[in-house]
Design a protein around this nucleic acid. Structure first.
Length: 1145
RNA sequence: AGUCCCGUAGCUCAGUUGGUUAGAGCGCUACACUGAUAAUGUAGAGGUCCACGGUUCAACUCCGUGCGGGACUACCA
């Protein structure tokens, strides 16, 4: 005898989770699933490596479900799905975590703790929650290959990174420059953006602002400006909140499309006439409209009201390229300075619409200056280095610090002397009292005396402060290494257009726009735990070397030893070509060890390593290469792992991992790194707030999985909202999924198993051809095939949400609530005949197909279901749903007409049930007939096919069609806007009114003749039946219900015959309940004795046979008195009857 | 500030090329049904489809401008 279909006491998804994990372990299911079928080939997935120094959260379950479901689906499609796990181990979060744990700050590293010890702590700390992560991976059913995960701190991983960097360096794409970064002069350190975002960093401070006047040089370019000027000079006005940057000014920026005007007026401080240029939109901010009419001749210096006159108008584009005189002549810059540029960041919201550019102190300034070849204002120091004219302590450079010949050439000692060695903000010098005149004020006053300023004002604005010292931050240029990503901008955009983004808008919008506005990638990080920059340079930076492999480094060190710069070779034990971890553990490429390596230049000079680390995003973005240790390994089969077919991460990775993957692949391989991508949104708490440990609203994935099992969690996350929408995570939603979807599916299976076991169904019989099965079987099979088609299409399109929703709808609505409900009687009792077999086969196939369709999203329960179905029948040789191929749909089994018929049946049934409820007649009480008006000629044919189902469902004897339309039906007519709208346009409103005004007679005649001519505004209009919708709304004297075109009427007369039958059904119901309460088995035979009573006598006598058949009773007798036990009292229509139900021996 | 996502019932979400009664589930209320029962059915209450403007015979749907929530990037005279 074959196995049974297992029957369960209840649905415990948490237990199933655990059981299935054991089964997978025992059968090694995951490894078996990594195979290809039918030569499908590989499907490559890249895992965005998590960092194991944090505890996994519920959002990781979300992201990983999305990853997992697609990979499982592709496995089911026959692909060999490659997916290597990895760990991200470098980076600031790790360091900050360690700093916190050790109670130290960045300054302590190298002093209180050695870099070596510090990095040692980082190395262990970063893996501290590895166990938790692996546990989550396992419990949530995330199938990823954990056998040999890549680890970014591994020397082999770093070696690939170095190789990649060398490729870029060789081609000139890796260069040193500087970048404007927030810097704390008081703490002597740069600040990261997150340090700037710490709460309380921004304070309001009061600054001196001024509008400076930049005198233009009259030449060919500017000549057109002077044609109607009364003054000999023309000035551009530029506003600044940091007058101390004015000495560093080397350019002015205007907006290309912005309109500027030339204004004649007086300098309010000197009283001299001036001609100035300002944006037209901002004219009245400086020159009040009310002063426009003032007489120039009456103006006296010192007057509050200053007359002005507009003399001309031009665009920013016309001003481009004009030269001006240096505003403050302390230090001369290199050639090419003092030019008007155009910049897209210039606005007319405040100031003058003209922006002063100091390339050494502003990010925008730096960028626009670089793009236009404008030199920054820098000074040469005694040690030969160059720096901005403000030093890192926040002081104007003292003349004494400067190179002597530079001073001779470029410094105006007379003018500079009063200002050198002053702090740019008083806070930087503890000896200065807060009310000391600031440098800003001093400069402003100086400009005022020289007539070079138009207005001086105090302004309050918010400004970032250093969180350690609480002193204002300085934006300061710091050395950094860059990758020239801008050189690849167009190619990156081109390649991006070939990527399938989900949602598309993230690709074209957020990511696409990011690429269009790309700047060079700042690779430098002044930290300790990370991949060191493999560049060595001589002290004067004239010569540099970029190292691309361990072997190369070893060889270079040998040269260095020969040159006498090193004593021994730290890579001495390393042997090239041996890729074992042992070989790669004989040295360490991290700091401080690399810092102690000195190389020799080609000219024999000593070279030092550049102290920076590289951005960790380079680590993760290089993962396609580095996980393979390319090109040191996998050189020939790299195409089998690159590019990825699919990746998925949170949308917050757009500028992170998504970008670095894309950039590196473009630069190194001229290829995309991934072909398809899902970027998901955030997981918020149920109120839409960000989850955080601090607020205590974070959901623990482990306890959620433990309570519900992973499947409901996964199902909820996928089906509740599209992945890219933020998910408001509510655990009650998980509970609902459990009850609604899994509960219903489990019930359906339980129902099937119960009867299949009774009848010993094992799917051993020959399959009954679908066209020989009953209508309702063909209907559910049709829907099932439609479902397979739809779900497959959705998965193929990376649309998990639609796939899951379609499956759920099918299971709960169609399979359970309609198919099983209507077919229950086919399974219990009766012969094991063809009809019953068809019922079993149909339901079995539905269940089995569902398990295969839903397996990617709910891998545990679906495998349970599949195994239970398959073990009893042995239909598949595979012992897991994850090893079986995705179902294939049969187009010929999809019958849309049949689906429509059943839709009619469902609607009419529910209308009749509604009517019964309205008049309070129980469904158990049979009724004689329903009447259905026939809306069109095909209707009768359609309804005949499903008539029996409807009648059985609503307990009515027969159906009567009403095709005679005129007499009893009350009709309603509605215009069909879709056909009429395009034809009549503006007349629609009146036509609509005319149609609703039709009398019943007119409607009838319209129906009979098939057209209805009439006129509106003397325009002739002819309606045909296609232009309107005629529905039968009411049948006077009947209980009637409507749903769209469908109408049904119910005859509610209860004759004696019907009443007797109703009573008999009441008895069946009571006896069934007694059977169940008493604990009889479903198959037990019984004897029923009913106390005789006038009210029920006729009913029981007439329908004894019916009662017997329904309740498995051998005898149903009326008696006057009882003996024996199990005597109950039942209430039938308020009459109490005693009844005895006894199991036969 | 820029870019992107979202805004439909108390809650979570559908709503397909614009077409006239805007749907589902949960929750609430009432009544039914029940040898699938931690289910199920029917009905009721609950909507200015964020606002305003435009296109159109017709806008939840298309366009524009705001407002609100969120994410990322950036911090500017």
């Amino acid at each position: 005898m074959g196995k049974w279909f297992p029957e369960y006491k209840g649905l415990d998804l948490s237990q199933i989770n655990k059981d299935i994990l054991k089964v997978w372990d025992k059968n090694d299911t995951f490894h078996k699933s990594i195979r290809e079928v039918n030569g499908k080939g590989e499907f490559i997935f890249y895992e965005g490596p998590p960092s194991a120094n944090g505890i996994p959260g519920i959002h990781h379950v979300m992201a990983r479900t999305i990853k997992d479901a697609i990979c499982r689906f592709k496995t089911q499609c026959g692909y060999e799905v490659k997916r290597k796990a990895g760990w991200d181990t470098h980076g600031l979060p790790v360091e900050l975590g360690v700093e916190k744990a050790l109670g130290i700050t960045k300054e302590d590293i190298g002093t209180k703790i050695s870099i070596e010890d510090y990095n040692k702590v980082c190395r262990t700390d970063v893996m501290k929650y590895t166990d938790l992560w692996e546990d989550l991976t396992r419990k949530m059913g995330y199938w990823i290959n954990m056998d040999h995960p890549y680890v970014t701190y591994d020397n082999r991983y770093i070696e690939t990174l170095w190789w990649l960097l060398k490729q870029l360096h060789t081609k000139g794409y890796l260069y040193q420059g500087y970048t404007i970064q927030p810097y704390s002069p008081a703490a002597g350190t740069g600040l990261s953006s997150h340090e700037l975002n710490l709460p309380g960093c921004y304070h309001d401070i009061k600054d001196t602002t001024c509008i400076a006047l930049f005198k233009l040089i009259r030449d060919k370019k500017s000549g057109f400006l002077y044609n109607n000027t009364e003054t000999s000079d023309i000035h551009m006005m530029a506003w600044t909140t940091t007058p101390w940057t004015l000495p560093s000014n080397t350019a002015l920026a205007v907006g290309k499309e912005i309109t500027y005007i030339k204004v004649l007026s007086f300098n309010p401080y000197s009283g001299d006439p001036v001609t100035v240029i300002i944006a037209r939109d901002l004219l009245n901010a400086l020159f009040p409209e009310s002063n426009a009419g003032l007489d120039f001749s009456e103006y006296k210096p010192g007057d509050k009201k200053i007359p002005f006159r507009v003399l001309g108008e031009f665009t920013g584009g016309e001003l481009q390229g004009i030269n001006y005189e240096q505003l403050i002549d302390w230090i001369k810059p290199a050639e090419g300075a003092f030019r008007v540029l155009t910049g897209d960041f210039v606005t007319t919201e405040d100031g003058t619409g003209i922006v002063h550019i100091a390339p050494t102190f502003g990010a925008d300034d730096y960028r626009i200056a670089t793009e236009n070849g404008i030199p920054p204002l820098i000074v040469k120091r005694k040690d030969g280095s160059f720096s901005p004219m403000v030093d890192k302590r926040g002081y104007m450079v003292p003349i004494a610090d400067l190179d002597e010949s530079f001073v001779k050439q470029s410094v105006n000692i007379n003018t500079y002397t009063g200002f050198e060695a002053r702090p740019v903000k008083n806070e930087y010098d503890d000896n200065l009292s807060p009310d000391t005149e600031t440098l800003d004020v001093k400069i402003a006053v100086m400009l005022k005396q020289q007539g070079k300023v138009f207005r001086i004002e105090k302004q309050i604005h918010s400004y970032p402060h250093c969180w350690r010292t609480d002193k204002p931050v300085l934006y300061y240029p710091l050395d950094a290494w860059f990758i020239r990503t801008t050189a690849f901008r167009d190619r990156m955009i081109e390649l991006n257009n070939t990527i399938n983004w989900k949602p598309q808008s993230t690709g074209t919008g957020r990511f696409g726009k990011w690429l269009e506005n790309l700047v060079d990638w700042n690779l430098s990080r002044s930290r300790f735990w990370g991949t060191p920059l493999p560049i060595w340079a001589t002290e004067d930076r004239k010569e540099e070397k970029c190292i691309g492999s361990a072997a190369e480094l070893k060889a270079e060190i040998e040269k260095s030893i020969n040159a006498g710069f090193m004593k021994n070779n730290p890579l001495g034990k390393f042997s090239e070509g041996n890729n074992s971890s042992e070989n790669y553990e004989t040295f360490d490429l991290h700091r401080p060890f690399v810092d102690d390596i000195f190389l020799v230049s080609d000219t024999g000079r000593k070279m030092f390593r550049e102290p920076d680390l590289i951005d960790v995003w380079f680590d993760s973005g290089a993962m396609p290469y580095a996980q393979a240790h390319y090109p040191f390994e996998n050189k020939d089969n790299f195409h089998e792992m690159f590019p990825a077919d699919y990746i998925a991460e949170g949308v917050d990775q757009t500028r992170g991992w998504f970008f670095t993957l894309h950039a590196i692949a473009t630069m190194i391989s001229d290829s995309v790194a991934f072909k398809n991508i899902i970027s998901n949104g955030l997981v918020l708490d149920k109120n839409g707030n960000k989850m955080s440990k601090r607020l205590g609203n974070a959901v623990d994935p482990f306890s959620a999985i433990d309570e519900y099992g992973s499947d409901p969690l996964r199902w909820y996350m996928i089906t509740n909202a599209q992945p890219w929408d933020n998910l408001k995570f509510n655990i009650s939603g998980v509970d609902e999924v459990k009850r609604k979807f899994f509960g219903t599916l489990y019930n359906t299976y339980s129902f099937f198993a119960l009867y299949a076991n009774v009848d010993n169904f094992r799917y051993a019989e020959k399959e009954i051809p679908v066209n020989e099965r009953p209508e309702i079987d063909r209907w559910i099979i049709s829907l099932l095939n439609s479902l397979v088609k739809e779900v497959g299409r959705c998965y193929d399109d990376y649309d998990l949400t639609r796939a899951g929703r379609a499956i759920q709808e099918f299971v709960t609505e169609n399979l359970s609530n309609w198919y099983v409900r209507l077919n229950r009687k086919r399974y219990w009792g009766g012969e094991y005949d063809k009809d019953k077999l068809a019922a079993y086969q149909t339901l079995f196939v539905c269940l089995e197909t569902i398990s295969r369709l839903a397996a990617p999203i709910a891998p545990f329960y679906m495998d349970r279901l599949f195994i239970d179905l398959n073990d009893a029948t042995g239909r598949h040789k595979e012992n897991s749903v994850h090893l079986v191929l995705f179902p294939i749909y049969d187009e010929s089994l999809i019958d849309k007409a049949l689906e429509e018929r059943m839709d009619i049946a469902q609607k009419i049934s529910s209308m009749i049930l509604g009517l019964r409820r309205k008049v309070s007649i129980k469904v158990r009480q049979p009724l004689a007939r329903i009447m259905v008006p026939v809306p069109d000629k095909y209707f009768k044919e359609k309804f005949e096919a499903v008539k029996d189902l409807v009648l059985a469902e609503v307990n009515v004897k027969e159906v009567e069609y009403i095709d005679d339309t005129a007499s009893i039906l009350v009709k309603k007519i509605k215009p069909n806007f879709k056909t009429l709208g395009p034809r009549y346009g503006k007349l629609m409103k009146e036509i609509s009114n005319a149609i609703s005004a039709l009398t019943p007679q007119e409607i009838v005649s319209f129906e009979n003749t098939g057209n209805h001519p009439f006129s509106i505004n003397s325009q002739q209009i002819v309606l045909t039946t296609g232009d309107v919708e005629i529905i039968s709304e009411d049948i006077p004297g009947w209980q009637v219900a409507n749903d769209g075109k469908l109408t049904v009427a119910l005859d509610i007369t209860v004759s004696d015959d019907l009443r007797y039958e109703g009573i008999a059904r009441e008895f069946v119901n009571r006896i069934q309940n007694i059977r169940k309460e008493t604990g009889f088995d479903v198959t037990d035979k019984i004897t029923v004795l009913i106390e005789d009573h006038d009210f029920i006598r006729e009913a029981v006598t007439r329908h004894a046979a019916y009662i017997r058949s329904q309740t498995l009773a051998t005898t149903v007798n009326l008696v006057n008195s009882f003996t024996g036990n199990n005597i109950r009292e039942v209430d039938i229509d308020d009459t109490v009857i005693r009844i005895s139900v006894i199991k036969n021996n």
